[in-house]
Design a protein around this nucleic acid. Structure first.
Lengths: 405, 405
DNA sequence: CTATCTTTGTAAAGCTCCCTGACGAATGCA
DNA sequence: TGCATTCGTCAGGGAGCTTTACAAAGATAG
């Protein structure tokens, strides 16, 4: 429960945090303005700002002018005080970006994933990271944190990748540890859909929403949920496993057990199967079906419409259980406007108030942006976070119940 | 964002909180033990304990003995330092209890709700509260907080009851304000299902679970979700509206629009309709159908089995989206073991790993217990809470995205 | 029964961090 | 040029925590 750290630094730490937060929120401002915003005294602000400036986190920006009274020196966050690495490791592509403390991307690259897998991938990641850091002009000790997204199940504590579809061998080695060793920085690994959600929360349609959902429609179907600003993981990290929603087919049909009832119906394989069942001949991939749809293929149109008709209830289910402010659709299939409009149409037929829908604005970079955001959050918290994080007081233990954790 | 309160008291406030928390967690302990647990110095602990004892929150309990060294005075929370009121206002019954600071119920009573509604109900509540306080021997200024659960939609900020089924007129008056006036304490009003969830979290099957769901099956069907220890409300406070889950019927069938597809199928009316459709003659209420089932009525058995067959996929949906540690069933229908066993059976047929299920342990007192818990949490936080509640630092605004709130 | 060891709790001194009030410095306006 | 206004620093003081020292109280060994 309680911390055993001495509580001396806690007051100053709160002040540091408060000042940083004010600068993040309000942009370049003077010390006097910070004092007004934070309620701390001018004296204290001067001390804190000097401390932060000495350590390189802040820098002078300019001076105020035009207003009555003496002009003031304004300060801003020193964007180049630290850098982070965002990564998105997919089965076919490896995306990576170096960003500064303000989240601005300084260098970004996308390369095909080394299909030999295992340590080859690790080496590829490390080499790319070094190349990007050099290109962005990041000094040797400048990189502080990295976050990598990857499909499959990731242990949130250790970062071990338990199931890694499409990338051979990475579930047998400690990727995070190997990268930490090669790059000299802490690397956290996170599920890519979860990071995409964080990306949407930061720079996409989820910005400003306390609660929203992001659904990735592609080969498979996955969902990430942000509730009250925080990622919802569930008891076993399996929250958002929308593929297993008993919608779009008979939940008691064993054919849906493997991939999940919903994914069997509306995953890319389900769509292709449906197109073929209906007698379509234009191709076997979803991309080809969409191309046929554009060319006026009636069977493709029916296929996509039927897919939308099956997806709409799934969105109703999400709305009923989570009540998100908006549901953002992403993934290679989810961003197609043809499908989107058909889903909209069917949603309106379900009665009640349909959920607000949006197509991902940041598209296939969502996980990368989320990785950068996650790394920045980690960085901020490690620099200016509090050791003491007081939550609600736990209720006393009563009767036969177990105590709160 | 930042506070404008002076930060002087924050250090002592953290210390006060830490000591209280240690006493809540570890029961009666000596000052020296508190010092060890919290990491604060013995000196500071002595000061803090003296302060708390002077204000009546702590009291001496006894002395340690039998161990090496000087014996120590042990302290404990003074249970009788403050009292709270828990209330559960239903369409037919009004339940109320007075509890002490440790959550022990000192007086409890259940009366029929005054069916005249409106101010009559307010007067009834106030009178019952005074009677219970007197019976529990609570001094005049002893009651500090009250929380009341009620069905329908409650504005989380103002406590205004927007929709109050079965109780005429309470949606047109400021119940919380009227009670505050009559009882002289702060009264918060909360949705009863949400409170039932809190009750399960505190003293029921949710104890110790970070994420779980509570489903109330009765006249209607409702759900409350606790995610990472916190109640999930959703963007419009409509999270957990499981009645609208598009399961158990055709989601495009307008007959399900009013009550919701799932509730139309498995609400008490849906069950009764099904029994009649199958040719059942034993009665028209669910209670009568269950009685017939016990008497060996085959049609009742089929009705209940079919109901369970429809409910199981809804639970699968909850598991897929939320991944709860356990799903607790409550409400007059949800606690019936006959139904529970049938649901279990059908869940096992859905493939995948079925969610862990449990029947509510605290039954129809769940909302009342949750109200007591909520009132205690409010009380603790008002007494020993921090003004500053630092969350994660917000990410900087980048590109065209809006800033974080 | 006494000496010793351990633990508890208090006292005094010092440090960190914050605030207040005063004051010089800088700036716009009349 | 003088004045009002705002910025930023200096000096003084208070709150709260820690450390060191020490007295008090109890257990144990001989």
């Amino acid at each position: 429960m309680a911390t055993d750290a001495p509580s001396t630094p806690v007051a100053r730490q709160i002040s540091l945090r408060t000042v940083i937060q004010a600068l993040l929120d309000e942009g370049p401002i003077s010390r006097a303005q910070i004092a007004k915003i934070t309620g701390l005294s001018k004296q204290t602000i001067s001390e804190v700002v000097r401390e932060l400036e000495d350590d390189g986190w802040l820098r002078e920006r300019g001076r105020t002018q035009g207003v009555l009274g003496r002009s003031a020196v304004t300060y801003e966050i020193n964007n180049r005080a630290a850098f982070v690495l965002g990564m998105d490791l997919g089965g076919t592509k490896l995306r990576m970006a170096v960003a500064d403390l303000a989240g601005a991307v300084l260098a970004e690259e996308e390369v095909p994933t080394d299909l030999r897998g295992g340590l080859h991938v690790v080496e590829q990641i490390a080499a790319l990271a070094r190349r990007l850091a050099a290109r962005a002009g990041v000094p040797a000790a400048g990189l502080r944190f990295g976050v990598m997204g990857t499909p499959g199940v990731v242990d949130p504590e250790s970062g071990a990748i338990h199931v890694a579809p499409n990338i051979p061998g990475v579930d047998r080695i400690d990727v995070a540890g190997a990268l930490r060793e090669r790059l000299g920085i802490t690397i956290a690994i996170e599920n890519d859909v979860n990071l995409a959600v964080k990306g949407e929360q930061w720079q996409g349609h989820g910005a400003g929403a306390g609660t929203f959902a992001f659904i990735a429609l592609g080969t498979g179907i996955g969902m990430g949920i942000v509730a009250d600003g925080k990622l919802l993981r569930g008891a076993r990290g399996a929250a958002g496993e929308i593929a297993y929603l008993p919608i779009g087919g008979d939940p008691y049909d064993p054919r849906g057990f493997m991939l999940g009832t919903l994914e069997t119906a509306v995953g890319s394989k389900g769509i292709a199967d449906r197109y073929r069942d209906y007698g379509g001949t234009a191709g076997t991939t979803v991309r080809e079906i969409f191309t046929a749809l554009e060319a006026g293929d009636a069977i493709a149109a029916v296929t996509i419409d039927e897919t939308a008709r099956l997806i709409a209830p799934a969105l109703i289910a999400v709305q009923a259980l989570i009540d998100p402010e908006v549901i953002v659709l992403g993934g290679s299939i989810g961003v197609r406007t043809e499908l989107f409009e058909r889903i909209r149409h069917h949603l309106a037929r379900c009665g009640h108030v349909p959920p607000r829908l949006a197509i991902s604005r940041i598209g296939n970079r969502a996980a990368l942006i989320g990785a950068i955001g996650a790394a920045l959050t980690d960085l901020h918290n490690s620099l200016f976070g509090l050791d003491v994080k007081p939550g609600d007081l736990s209720l006393p233990t009563v009767g036969g119940a177990d105590g709160d954790p």
